[in-house]
């Protein structure tokens, strides 16, 4: 979103979980407060539990989420780092969960992927909204699969590469489904092609000096990876 179109201050909040007992999903629209201002999260955020480090100390679980000011206007901008309270938690949760934010600004909102998804109807030349992607993606790569399904890989979320989290569109339900069994890292902007044997090929993006080619099997639902030489990689089917 360009700066001229930004009406609400926004930024990235890191939600911390000091509890090693359980992770938590904080729903979209949760209010985060700091310095008397309120901000709403723009999507669900799943925060893992804290985990023990090698020296026995606990490292808080953490996950980033985008927040937007509840009301419009530049008065909602914040400079510098601050801690945010999370509303709607019980007493124990409040002790363990908090947000850490950097600047909240009215600046251009870069690399913030959308989870919006549409089918284009070539007969009526209109778009029809589908259920959202499970992950917001800035510049994902899509490739058609058998049966009208679509595989989505890569993209940035808040400026960070999505680390191997891929998903598949199911046309019968018009919904996207996370595919943990297809977990595989792709760089930004990979090109994917379906091949005649049911495989796909990817000619990868920004991996300097390595023309990387991958074959990806699509017959089964699962994929495991083996390397077939320095410049190619094969994903055989797990049928």
């Amino acid at each position: 979103m360009l700066a001229a179109d930004v009406t609400r201050a926004a930024g990235i909040l890191t939600v911390k979980n000091e509890s090693d007992a359980s992770g938590i999903t904080i729903p979209r629209g949760t209010r985060f407060t700091a310095r008397g201002n309120a901000y709403l999260s723009t999507e669900d955020v799943a925060v893992p539990p804290a985990h023990a480090m090698g020296d026995g100390t606990l490292m808080a679980g953490s996950q980033d989420v985008c927040i937007e000011a509840e009301v419009e206007g530049p008065e909602q901008t914040l400079t510098g780092a601050q801690q945010f309270q999370i509303e709607g938690l019980d007493a124990e949760q409040s002790r363990n969960l908090y947000g850490q934010g950097d600047a909240i600004t009215m600046q251009k909102q870069n690399y913030r992927g959308l989870d919006a998804s549409y089918e284009f109807d070539v007969d009526s030349e209109t778009y029809r909204k589908t259920d959202p992607l499970t992950t917001s993606r800035w510049y994902p790569t899509l490739v058609g699969l058998p049966g009208g399904r679509v595989l989505a890989v890569s993209g940035l979320e808040y400026g960070k590469i999505i680390d191997g989290d891929n998903e598949v569109y199911e046309p019968s339900t018009r919904s996207w489904n996370d595919q943990p069994e297809l977990d595989r890292y792709f760089p930004t902007y990979p090109s994917l092609f379906r091949l005649a044997d049911g495989h796909r090929l990817s000619t990868a993006g920004p991996t300097p000096a390595t023309a990387r080619t991958r074959r990806v099997a699509s017959r089964g639902s699962g994929i495991s990876a083996t390397t077939a030489g320095p410049t190619s990689m094969v994903w055989p089917t797990r049928s």
Partner: peptide, 21 residues
């Protein structure tokens, strides 16, 4: 030098050739 490159399946698809430019 693959960043911002372009790749495409050559026609006819049954020839199974992919180009990168």
């Amino acid at each position: 030098m693959n960043e911002t490159s372009t790749s495409f399946l050559l026609a006819p698809a049954q020839d199974q050739k992919v180009a990168i430019v």
